[in-house]
Write a protein that binds this DNA or RNA. Structure first.
Lengths: 210, 210
DNA sequence: AGCAGTATTCCTCACATGAGGAATAACGCG
DNA sequence: CGCGTTATTCCTCATGTGAGGAATACTGCT
């Protein structure tokens, strides 16, 4: 038979075959397509149908797997279950304040440097900037930077962690969103060597005007 | 007569009055509405009709004034003619490298702290993150940071200006997009005092591992 | 008051969207 | 091979979008 099997290609009469795929790849294809669409078009410019088109499935299938629609699709496209950021940061902090700046930057850049990380970061920033998603921001504030802040001595812990967050986020935005050279393609170790001491100064050093 | 005059409110029969407004406010209303819509919905989520609704005008009027459609609307909503950023930076650089870090941060934060600045910044970041606008990024790279870079001695001028840009952008994103306290509401002078020295170190100080 | 210019609206069209629901055919097991 | 389950498609509907074009009424000048 020259007809395509399972979902996807069209028959002579224009219809597409139904039935499940043997390799069960539909969900992964949808999620990958969603990541690409959200990264390229932003939250508002991404449609369920656009994602379906890109994944070569019917929009009804997207609805079947992600009944919550675009919000659920966004959340699932972002989710990564292999990494527990809060747990990682807790471990970094538990190793003490010395060198924490460099370790933080190392882990953060390493995380977003991973495959798909750039897309995810752009998704988050774009959605947050256009007020459509606050979940990741709030998670970062409470579970990530909140743990760093808890390890710092008063009275200026909030200010210190705010400065660290500012610089960290700036490196990420410059690297993944603005793609300004040489920051965009600098080796991670180089960034850590250059920026780590600054973060450490913000964490434990003397603040000007304090 | 109890009927509304010129554009806007509805008559008893549901139609709206036509004809120009006496105060010529239509364009400004459209632009203000565009800024709000782009900031709240992102580029892809903003429609010409949505802007028109918000501005209380007919979508045809938006098309009349901004015949290039959404792209032109975006560009004009962003444009500010009272400020020449490149010229401002050129003046700052002309005053010498000493204290340039603090002066840069002071001007940059002061600029975006101005009314409407937060919205504009979020518009730019969201659009850039979702790959829909590169103009402002490219302008910043060549006309703003490019002028700073030209004033620095080789051989690591690119790296230095990249670090400065990273930290500057991070402060803006943390202040206007993530809205993390206490950076979000810190007085400008406080930010300048805290971060200025770091920027200066990146501009003229010793870089670690150099 | 009359009138010209044009800002502003209304109408129309083709196409896209999210969402609900029924039909169907593919997979995998016995 | 037969069959049950369900992944996957197709169909339909209401609503929204950008864009073109004609009509109209308001402003401001004479």
């Amino acid at each position: 038979m020259s007809e395509p099997s399972a979902a996807g290609g069209r028959r002579q009469d224009g219809t597409r075959p139904r039935g499940r795929r043997a390799d069960g790849s539909a969900v992964e294809d949808i999620l990958a397509a969603a990541r690409a669409e959200f990264a390229e078009r932003g939250y508002g410019g991404t449609s369920v149908r656009g994602v379906a088109r890109r994944a070569h499935v019917d929009p009804g299938l997207v609805r079947y797997y992600f009944g919550g629609g675009k919000p659920e699709l966004f959340a699932m496209a972002l989710a990564r279950r292999e990494i527990d950021p809060a747990g990682v940061v807790a471990t970094l902090v538990a190793d003490g304040l010395d060198g924490l700046g460099a370790r933080l930057l190392d882990v953060v850049v390493g995380t977003w440097d991973a495959p798909g990380g750039r897309e995810r970061f752009r998704m988050v920033i774009a959605a947050t900037a256009s007020g459509q998603d606050h979940l990741v921001r709030d998670f970062l504030a409470s579970e990530v930077f909140g743990r760093v802040r808890a390890a710092l001595p008063a009275p200026d812990a909030d200010l210190r962690v705010g400065l660290v967050a500012s610089h960290l986020v700036g490196v990420l935005v410059t690297r993944y969103v603005l793609e300004l050279e040489p920051v965009a393609s600098a080796p991670r170790e180089e960034l850590v060597a250059l920026v780590g001491p600054t973060l450490q100064r913000y964490l434990t050093g003397e603040l000007p005007g304090a």
